[in-house]
Design a protein around this nucleic acid. Structure first.
Lengths: 158, 158
DNA sequence: CTTGAATATTTTAAGCTTGAAATAAAATAG
DNA sequence: CTATTTTATTTCAAGCTTAAAATATTCAAG
């Protein structure tokens, strides 16, 4: 090394530690949410995620939009939506002008059901992240956003 | 509201946004790592995680220690270890003094295999988190650590 | 000792997830 | 128009994951 700075192989290790922490935090939170959903509502996280995406999208979402939004495979969404249709919380409606596509929408029942769920969910998350005040939470969120931002090729399928 | 401060229902929402960002970042990174492991090594993330845990533990780990460490269920570890045993990367050895328990250890082959893998893996992670310098990565890791720290009941089974 | 509770692991059934192959329809070229 | 390619979705096989039940062994009283 000819320059004055030290040879920093500590940098990749620090990033690796960050990834491991991120993963651990995610698993912890997910395990708690999964348990509450299961015990208190007999539901699951994947179903909640689909309902949440549909609730954000006023006019419903096509299957492919859903899988993009949730970053899961196409085939995966098919199965989850199948089960939600059985429950009566969502419906598949044909997209006119394109007989290949389906638009998935919340039913009125599904919308009411989800509203209650989402309210509770927000509380659970807030409790799990109770150590962060508003400013800190926003700052961390912004920093994490740069990860998705800098790695733009996030295709799950194909 | 009689006090001077504003009624902060923005706090749970900020925490919820943080959770959604955390989840998105985690999925993005995991998808990238999964693809590299699959294409370049014909392996999977769960297998990598088990090998990594065993590599950190000089004397091997009992099945229950493995599932605690990885925060996954007991039965889950059984299946992954079964497949690693088939590959010849790990072995189950009886724990003497307790005929119920098994200690899982890397084979020499498994250790060599994992060393290559871990090296690459560190590089992949470092690339995905390239937007963070060492100090930032450490600071974020420390903050994320407080999540696990404040939510100590992290039993997966039972 | 023996009985009963606790612990370590595996098995099971159901659901989740992926990547690839199969279908079907739409868009593009010749 | 017709053939080819692309797009939207489903199906499929394999593996992952969970929660609960089943096994097997150890521990703790009595």
């Amino acid at each position: 090394m000819s320059n004055a700075g030290h040879n920093n192989n500590a940098l990749p290790k620090a990033r690796l530690r960050l990834w491991l922490r991120l993963l651990k935090a995610q698993r912890l939170i997910e395990a708690e949410l999964r348990e509450k959903l299961r015990i208190e509502y007999g539901s699951t996280l994947p179903r909640f995620d689909v309902l949440a995406a549909l609730h954000r999208a006023e006019r419903g979402l096509k299957m492919s939009e859903l899988s993009d939004e949730l970053m899961v495979s196409n085939g995966n969404v098919t199965g989850i939506v199948d089960r939600l249709v059985e429950d009566g919380t969502v419906v598949r409606v044909p997209v006119d002008g394109d007989r290949r596509a389906m638009r998935v929408k919340l039913t009125d029942e599904g919308r009411n059901y989800f509203r209650k769920l989402a309210d509770e969910h927000e509380g659970w998350v807030s409790d799990l992240l109770a150590m962060f005040d508003e400013g800190t939470a926003e700052e961390l969120a912004a920093r994490l956003h740069t990860i998705a931002d800098s790695n733009t090729e996030h295709e799950v399928n194909k």
